[in-house]
Design a protein around this nucleic acid. Structure first.
Lengths: 211, 211
DNA sequence: TATAAATGTAAACAATTGGTTACTTGATTT
DNA sequence: AAATCAAGTAACCAATTGTTTACATTTATA
């Protein structure tokens, strides 16, 4: 029988949550190599030993963080309930969502970069993430099918490439906002500039799929 | 009067070049924090002291590397001589070039990521890079103008956003090839898959600009 | 209530790492 | 040929860092 203790002075679940949250920020801002276990412990207000107690190693902690990051975004996408919209609206909603998610969760982009710098070795063994993504590709495929039926979209569009492009046009812009702002001599994070970029992206995707 | 010594046993220029080349690979594969000065020295076959002699610090060495990386790609773009082509061909050539450059120089992507992780603090003081990029945006703008004159392109297309999108659709795919290959359960680096992606990208850009 | 398991702390360790010191060797100039 | 400066080497250092050891306290349960 599970006991719930509402007034625990010791709370392993909250300790784990705190560690994960602190680790996410630390890894995102400094990368896997740049991240410091001591800093994670300090931010999480937890003794460093607890990190090793619950997560075994810095490497494994990173793995937990990146897995959770992927599951979180895939979960948020499912909550959009795109099945209830016509294909064009569904696609536009997805582009807007992806953009906003990256904008609101810059850590996600950083973590994915880190994981790729390390040849995705942490994600390689994650069945759960693969399955979540399989569902996601299926979702996009069904939007495409619906669009063809409605006479709005071209057929034979590759859902994986479409997916990648939807992510790419948001990800690249936000990932490289620092070098981009210098190079293009323009604040890429200015709110009007951001809004125009989103409209540009929606246009890009809709023109790509339409007949 | 400058003397040229063809048989120097001591060659500061070649030492500097070796350090820069080794540093570029080391920073690209491990990031700024992950890179080891000792490893750079070993690969460059140079005493570690020489790195500090010529480059002052690890940080400054990174700055030299990232600056050169940007100047190199902007230089390669200029050599395409896009002015001699009709607008549509020029744009397609640029998309193909960008893709191939990222494919052949994966270090470039990694370095740009690192620089953004560090808020572009090394590039901030680089007038030369900003100027090179100004020329590049001008080049794309002139292609767009030509396309409008030829009656092929829509007008009022923002050259910066177009630039960003051309880069994005190649960059994202290749940057995230490791996580992408796992997530999409498909080898994104398979040569047929790569070819299809390039065609997809050309289509994306041409549909975006055409009337 | 005794006991074992879970949760937590302080301190230290061994390895690593960016950077430096002290010195040697080779090339150029006068 | 002597003197001067650039180029190069080996050894070392102080600080950092991921990880561990040894120990203490709280909680759940037999």
């Amino acid at each position: 029988m599970e006991r719930v203790n509402l007034s625990r002075t010791r709370d392993s679940e909250s300790t784990k949550r705190n560690i994960l949250a602190a680790a996410k920020m630390e890894f995102a801002t400094k990368g896997l190599s740049g991240a410091r276990v001591d800093d994670i412990a300090n931010v999480a207000k937890v003794n460093k030993r607890m990190i090793y107690h619950y997560f075994e190693s810095k490497e494994n902690l990173f793995k937990q963080v990146i897995e959770k990051a992927y599951l979180d975004i895939r979960e948020a996408e499912l909550e959009l309930n795109l099945e209830h919209l016509d294909a064009k609206s569904a696609l536009e909603t997805l582009v807007r969502f992806t953009w906003k998610y990256y904008l609101d969760n810059p850590e996600f982009i950083r973590l994915v970069n880190s994981e790729n710098l390390h040849h995705a070795r942490h994600l390689k063994t994650s069945k759960e993430v693969v399955q979540a993504n399989r569902n996601y590709v299926g979702l996009v495929q069904s939007i495409l099918d619906r669009g063809v039926q409605e006479g709005e979209f071209r057929d034979q569009i590759d859902p994986v490439n479409l997916n990648i492009t939807i992510a790419a046009i948001g990800y690249y812009y936000l990932n490289n906002r620092f070098t981009g702002s210098i190079i293009f001599e323009k604040d890429l994070m200015d709110s009007e500039v951001l809004d125009k970029r989103l409209e540009f992206n929606i246009e890009t995707i809709l023109k790509l799929v339409s007949r």
